[in-house]
Simulated assay, not measured.
Amino acid sequence: MSNEITLDIRQCKPGMKVSEEIINNFGAILVHKYTILDDYTVNKLMNFGIEKVKVYEDYEPKTKNDMEVNIVYEEKVNEFKTIIKDIGIGKKLDTLKVQNIVRELNDSFTSINEIITNLKSNRAIDEYTYSHSLNVSLLCSLIGNWLGLSPAQKRTLSYCGLLHDIGKSKIPPEILDKPGPLTPSEYEEMKKHSIFGYKILEGNIAISKDIMMAVLMHHEREDGSGYPFGLKGDKISFYAKVTAIADVFDAMTSDRVYKKRQTCFDVFEMFESEYLTKCDANILLTFLSRVASYYIGSNVRLSDGSYGEIVFINQKAISKPIIRLEDSRIVDLSMEKELQIEEVL
């Protein structure tokens, strides 16, 4: 690692790597150590009155705009749609196209802001199957970074996320695209997608066993309540455990044909109340802590119609942040049981 230098916030450039945690006046972590700065993060720090930032001296300048990132994303959605439809009519998986999608996604989306902003974008509901796979790939890579994994492991996670639902290419469209809840028999058919996905990848020398196991096991749960085998704990692939968290988060925060998206804080609450025993606790808590800290500084609308800004995330109640209202009053949502976040603006 290169030498550390202290810069005025106005001297900070996209591509610089932060060398220590940056904390606001409430004690909340605004930016974690080793974060790569982008325009969004620099502006966020300026808005919080941060004047000095410690960064590593060496850095690679980042020059791109949101439009370029969006264009790449839409291109990759269309390419992945072609891959899925080809498999649906019996063609083999085009691994070169898959590699290209993963490489270009990782080259284009290099910060949490780019990924979260993309997740929040309104996309065509009938494109969900394809955009969801790209989103899970991006989230898997992000989690891998937060867990301190090697570049090779993060790349494997990107493939796991992209391919995790590939078996849905074998699910009848009337079930996959049904505009309402599935019947018990339809749900049993849908659950077969993880096995179908494994069979699609089986024998492909370009696909590692880790990726195949993630595709097969991403619906398994730590307590044995998942499928297709009801596996528990260390019987579940590590890559499947990461993929499972990314899968659930994107699914719950996306519009579906039969269900509106939930706010990220609704999903955080669900994770805290229902999933600490279903998902790997270490991976889940790392994910919740890091992704929630991104929202510090975000403006929100509360269920009583008031507006405010998130100023602190309590790590013991991530879904219930502390809000500074427009009139400067401070509200701790963990103490105000009737009040909740209706919208992140």
Rank of each mutant, 00 (worst) to 15 (best):
L30V: 10
R256T: 03
K259R: 13
I318V: 13
M252P: 01
D250L: 04
E338C: 05
T82A: 14
D94K: 02
L302R: 06
G144W: 02
L162H: 00
N299P: 08
P173T: 05
P228D: 11
I71V: 14
M67V: 15
E127M: 07
I166Y: 06
M1C: 04
P14S: 07
L288V: 07
S225G: 10
D223Q: 03
I166G: 02
N282V: 15
R290A: 06
S111N: 06
V72N: 06
E220C: 12
S319H: 06
K81R: 14
S108C: 07
T117F: 12
I245G: 03
S334A: 09
K154E: 09
T183Y: 08
M67A: 14
I341R: 00
C160L: 02
E309L: 10
L345G: 05
V242C: 04
A214N: 08
K199W: 08
E74G: 07
E114P: 10
L134I: 10
I116H: 06
P321K: 00
A246M: 01
E74Y: 11
T277P: 00
D94T: 00
G233M: 13
Q262M: 04
T263Q: 00
F26V: 00
Q315N: 13
A214S: 15
R155H: 11
N70S: 15
L182N: 00
I322F: 09
E272Y: 10
V102D: 13
A244M: 12
D332H: 13
P151Q: 11
E222G: 01
P184D: 06
L93V: 10
K209M: 07
H32L: 11
N118H: 02
Q153P: 04
K120F: 11
S303I: 02
K62P: 01
V72Q: 05
I323E: 01
L333G: 00
V69H: 11
Y239S: 03
V55T: 00
K64N: 09
K320L: 01
E336K: 03
K64A: 09
A317M: 13
G226M: 02
G161I: 03
D66Y: 14
N122E: 15
K54R: 15
K192D: 11
V102W: 08
E68R: 07
T129A: 11
S19G: 11
D66R: 15
I330G: 01
K97W: 15
S319A: 11
Y307H: 15
D8V: 10
G305D: 12
D165A: 06
R324Q: 07
L147H: 12
D327A: 08
